[in-house]
């Protein structure tokens, strides 16, 4: 099986006053169709930069990103047809929705941009999507600020699903949410994957969550991927010292496992 997303030797460099800073360095990463790959690391490790490079929000300095075998790192960036195949869910459900647009318009927007279907069909599809992600379709006339954090993230997911992409890159999609809501959103993503076969690149700082949600995990540290493998294997038998530190630092909600 050929990978849906294939990243090779990807680097991203920022120029700073103290010289160049490599946010991402020589990264290789594959995502197969329909699978979930977790990308884990601490703040500043480059995981978000990597995600932004893939969708063309941040220019890469070198390497290759192929989606379904086609290069994305061209001078013009991803084409409209390629964008249709991969979408993005942002971390902050408050900042990632235009505060002055109604929910239905926000979910329709991708269809408007890609001119898919008639206006009436687009509206119908937006209502379907709202229902699919657990929002009442009659709420389409409301503005984002009328919703809770979890509901807004559902709006963000519906927007990402509108174009029926094959890959969704989720950048810390649940880290701004409460625990009980986090579980709902993760379960929604899981159900959507089972139903639609969409693949996820799931970026998170929470290795425990990633271990549960992703089939494969890549651990990132100082711009590089230091360990990659099946999530069960990495959890049981981490090979890189940073992965071990990360696992040991997770506060497990059980008293019999106190570490200090």
């Amino acid at each position: 099986m050929t990978p849906l997303l294939s990243v090779r030797d990807l680097s991203c460099r920022y120029e700073t006053r103290d010289g160049p800073l490599w946010a991402v360095r020589d990264v290789d990463l594959d995502v197969m169709p329909g699978e979930t790959v977790g990308l884990v690391g601490e703040s500043g490790c480059g995981k978000s930069t990597l995600a932004r490079c893939i969708v063309g929000l941040t220019p890469a300095s070198g390497g290759s990103i192929r989606l379904d075998g086609e290069e994305l790192l061209t001078r013009r960036g991803p084409s409209l047809a390629q964008r249709r195949q991969m979408q993005f869910v942002f971390q902050d459900p408050f900042a990632s929705l235009n505060p002055r647009r109604r929910v239905e318009a926000l979910i329709r927007e991708p269809l408007d941009v890609h001119r898919i279907g008639t206006p009436a069909e687009r509206t119908r599809r937006a209502r379907e999507l709202m229902e699919r992600v657990g929002l009442h379709p009659d709420w389409g006339r409301r503005f984002p600020h009328e919703f809770s954090g979890g509901q807004r993230q559902r709006i963000g997911i519906a927007r990402a699903l509108a174009l029926s992409p094959r890959l969704i890159i989720c950048d810390e999609p649940v880290s701004a949410l409460d625990v009980s809501v986090q579980a709902q959103v993760v379960n929604l993503l899981d159900a959507l994957q089972r139903e639609l076969g969409v693949a996820y690149l799931f970026i998170s700082h929470d290795l425990a969550l990633v271990e549960i949600f992703a089939q494969r995990v890549a651990v990132m540290y100082q711009g590089r991927i230091v360990e990659q493998g099946s999530s069960a294997e990495i959890w049981r038998n981490p090979s890189h010292p940073f992965t071990r530190t990360l696992i040991e630092a997770i506060p497990i909600p059980r008293v019999d496992q106190r570490s200090f």
Binding site: S180, D190, A208, L209
Partner: peptide
């Protein structure tokens, strides 16, 4: 609902949720 890989998974979904 708190992710804990050492516990069994729910029958449906990934995490136990509070509706």
């Amino acid at each position: 609902a708190t992710p804990d890989p050492t516990r069994p998974r729910p029958a449906r979904g990934v995490l136990h949720e509070i509706p």
